[in-house]
Amino acid sequence: MASTSSGRQTDARDRDSEGRARNARPRDGLGRPLPYGADGVARQPEGVVRTPQQTVAEAQELLNAGRPFHAHEVFEDAWKSGPDEERALWRGLAQLAVGLTHAARGNVTGGARLLRRGAGALEEWGASTVGRGKQSYGMDLAGLTGWARQLAQEVEQSGSAVDARARSPRLRG
């Protein structure tokens, strides 16, 4: 808390004009906040509308670079801007990326839980009439589901963090 000239305490956190958090702190490659002034990794711009093919390609580049937190933000943009019938697909992919993020940060329980939740969402989407009638933009949903469940099990068994770059999935078969 900071003090004003009247001695009143104010909130020193970054806020926009409406009081919402701006999240301006620098972040590391796994999205963890760093101290103000530290050199961080460039954040993904929010609210970018991409084609599904651009989303998959950009997310894969970020995953390959060991930046699953940033890949999650790309999937989240697709989830929020895409057609309603595809929201479950993109949300499931975002959950896989966040699960890998948590597993890489050493959050065993959270990582395994989100990996399984994302796998279930992809399975459910693929089995739905919407999912069966739509293409998956070249993604191997069955392979991603298997990858996520296997990694969740390995993370729980080892109890330790994983290398996000080494364990990143291949979105397309």
Rank of each mutant, 00 (worst) to 15 (best):
N107G: 05
D16F: 02
W125E: 01
S168G: 10
G143Q: 01
Q9G: 00
G37F: 06
T101C: 03
E124D: 13
A152I: 12
G99V: 01
T109D: 15
A104T: 03
A112D: 02
R50S: 07
R43G: 00
T10P: 00
E156Y: 08
A24Q: 11
A142D: 14
M1P: 14
Q44P: 06
A112S: 12
R27V: 15
D14S: 14
S168L: 08
G131Q: 02
T10G: 00
T145L: 02
A42L: 12
L96T: 09
R113L: 13
E76F: 05
M139A: 05
R32M: 09
G7Q: 07
A103R: 13
R91D: 10
Q157H: 10
A57L: 13
R149T: 11
E18Q: 14
L171E: 07
P83M: 08
E73W: 04
N64M: 06
Q95E: 11
P68W: 04
A21P: 12
A94K: 12
Q157V: 08
D39L: 15
S160Y: 08
A152K: 14
R105Y: 08
V41A: 06
A112R: 03
L144N: 07
G7R: 06
E124G: 06
R132T: 11
S5Y: 00
R22G: 15
T145G: 11
P83G: 14
R113N: 13
G40R: 04
P169A: 09
A38R: 07
A104R: 10
G92V: 00
G40N: 05
